[in-house]
Write a protein that binds this DNA or RNA. Sequence first.
DNA 1: TGTCCTCCTTCTCCGACGGTACGGACGTGC
DNA 2: GCACGTCCGTACCGTCGGAGAAGGAGGACA
Lengths: 221, 221
Amino acid sequence: MIRVLIADDQAMVRQGFGALLAAQPDLLVVGDAANGAEAVTAARRLDPDVVLMDIRMPVLDGLAATRQLVGDRPESDRPRVLILTTFDLDDYVYEALRAGASGFLLKDAPAADLVHAVRVVAAGDALLAPAVTRRLIAEFAARPGRDRPRPTSLAGLTPRETEVLRLIARGRSNGEIAAELVVAEQTVKTHVGRILSKLDLRDRAQAVVVAYESGLVTAGD
Amino acid sequence: MIRVLIADDQAMVRQGFGALLAAQPDLLVVGDAANGAEAVTAARRLDPDVVLMDIRMPVLDGLAATRQLVGDRPESDRPRVLILTTFDLDDYVYEALRAGASGFLLKDAPAADLVHAVRVVAAGDALLAPAVTRRLIAEFAARPGRDRPRPTSLAGLTPRETEVLRLIARGRSNGEIAAELVVAEQTVKTHVGRILSKLDLRDRAQAVVVAYESGLVTAGD
DNA sequence: TGTCCTCCTTCTCCGACGGTACGGACGTGC
DNA sequence: GCACGTCCGTACCGTCGGAGAAGGAGGACA
C-alpha cells in the first residue's frame, strides 16, 4: 500500500486529487496540507511514501518544503516528492530537481498519468512531464561532459610536472609547493619553468587557466 | 499518421516491434534497418518521424547513427530518435542523449509504454525510462548549476572589479588588461589590489582559482 | 543646492616573488 | 652509453602587489 500526502493550498485540488488517488486499490491518502510548513510537519507525523507537492503555496512554498523533507532523513526511508504544478517554468523545474524532487508533473496531465507517476515515484524511480524531460535533456546535452580525456597537450608533461601544475592550480606559491613536495624552492621553479615553456604560457596564472580548461582540476570539489 | 523506422540487428525484434506498432491506427511502420548505416540511408529516403534505434548494431552502432541523423538536418524536420536497448548502462544513456536522442527506453518495457513513447517523441517531447530519469536527475542535481547566484563573496566586488577579475581569469597581465579596458596600468593595479584584498587572496593566480570555483568563469566555453 | 559617499581613475615608491638563463648533480631504463 | 626525469644551485630582472595619496563623476539624501 502506497501512502500519499497531498500538499496544495486550494481545497478543491486537494479533494480532487484525493478522490482520484483513493479510487486506486493500492494507494492510500494519509493526509493533506494547505501549505509547505503544514506539509513538512504532516510528513513527519504521517510518514508517507509519496508527497504530492504544489509549488505556489503560502507560508512555505513547495520548493523549500521539498528541501526540508529531503534534508530531514537519509536516502533510504525518505518520502518521495512529486511536484505538481500549473506552470512548467524552467526555474521551477531546475530548482525542484535540485531540491530533491523525484518527479515533476503538470496539473493538466491525465488522471492515469498522475496515478502512474505516484507508483513510479514510490518505487524509487523518477518521472517527468514529457516537455520537462525534453528541456532537461537539452540542458544536459549542452553541458560539457565531465569525463573528457584531457585533450590538450597536458600529455607532454612529466608526472612531477603534472603534480606541480595541480598545486599551482590550487593557488599555491612556489615556496608552499616546495614545502609540500619536500624539495628546494629552486626545484619547483625549474618545474614551473618547464611547464610554462611546454604549454607555451607566460604566467602561473595562465597555468591555472589551462589546468581548469583541460580538466586537470575541476571547479567545485 | 506517425511514420516510424525500426533499426535493430535482430530480425525477430524488428518483426515484433513492427507488428506491435502497426496495430495502432495512428502509426505507420515505413521501413526497417539491420544496422546503423542502413538506418541512416533509410531515414534519408523514407523520412520517418520517429526512428526506433537499438544501440548495439554491427557496422555503425546506434549512437553514431543517431549523431548522423541529428546532424543531417535542421531542428525542425528531423527524425526523432528513440533509443531502445536491453541495457541501461549509464554511458549509453549519457552518450545517447548527447548524440541527440529524444528518448531512451528498455526493451523490457510494456508494449503500451513503447507506443506511448513513440507518440510523445513524435510530438517533439521527450521520454525516458523511469530508472533513467532518476539517474539523469541525480546527475543534473549534482552539477553545479550554471545559473547559481554566485554564493561566494564575489558580491562585494564592484562591476569594474568583476570585469577585471574576469580578465585575470583569462590569463591576462595587468598591461593587457589596461590596454583592453583603455585605462592606465596603474588603474588596473589598483583594481587588482582591491580584488585581492576584498577576497583575501595573495596572488592573481589565486584570483583565477576563485573565478573558476565561484562560477564567474566556466571551463569549456 | 550642498554634502556625503561610492566608484573609477591616476600617481609614486618599493620590496618580494616569479620567471629566465645557465650549469650541473644523480638515478632509472632502454 | 644515452636519454630522460628529478633535483639543486647562482645570478639577473621584471612584474606584481602593498601602502599611501588624491582628484573627478555620479547617485543619495536632507
